[in-house]
Design a protein around this nucleic acid. Sequence first.
DNA 1: CGAATGATATACT
DNA 2: GTATATCATTCGA
Length: 199
Amino acid sequence: MILPRDFYTREDVVGIARELLGKKLCTTIGGETAYALISETEAYEGVTDKASHAYGGRRTARTEIMYRQGGTAYVYLCYGIHSLFNIVTNQSGIPHAVLIRGIIPEDNNLALEKRSGMQISEKAGTGPGNVSRLLRIHYRHTGLDLCIPEYQREDGDVIWLEDAGIVIPDKDIIVTTRVGIDYAGEDALLPYRFIWKRR
DNA sequence: CGAATGATATACT
DNA sequence: GTATATCATTCGA
């Protein structure tokens, strides 16, 4: 039930961001496995998107990851404190990505939630910084391949996504503008943010 | 509301 | 090589 490569390599980042809602995000970090359902995403449309790190085709040591093929993890540090987890999409050479902004922890993961120092509540997975904190994702995990959930690193850490078989009707999804990107000018107005509104 | 916080990009010497 | 402005944020008043 692991999401196949061709789920990520399609051209429509915004569509992928929409479909990512309700999928299961799993990590095994430091020998401990955690997972949660994705409840909020944002699409970043690479070269044509001022909010993207790769706007205008910029290539640096950090953004190089975004030019890889879809299904690659792009994790980077923001505001000196938070690791933000993104999923690279499209073919290699096209720097599209989807930012995971929110997750819903499942009941059998409450222990892990507790261990990561979070309050146990529905809101525990809200906010991109908290997503990484809950699942113990660190910016050193950038570049991991999400389609090959086998050991790719010496420390044995892995990240992958599974299809949980959840279908979310359009009426349960809120589409809105992205946040925290005022500097992106008119691109800040694009409806690239998807929120799974639970009951 | 405002401070904390550090890697990164960019512009210098 | 070093300096400094910047940031896809969070938490606690």
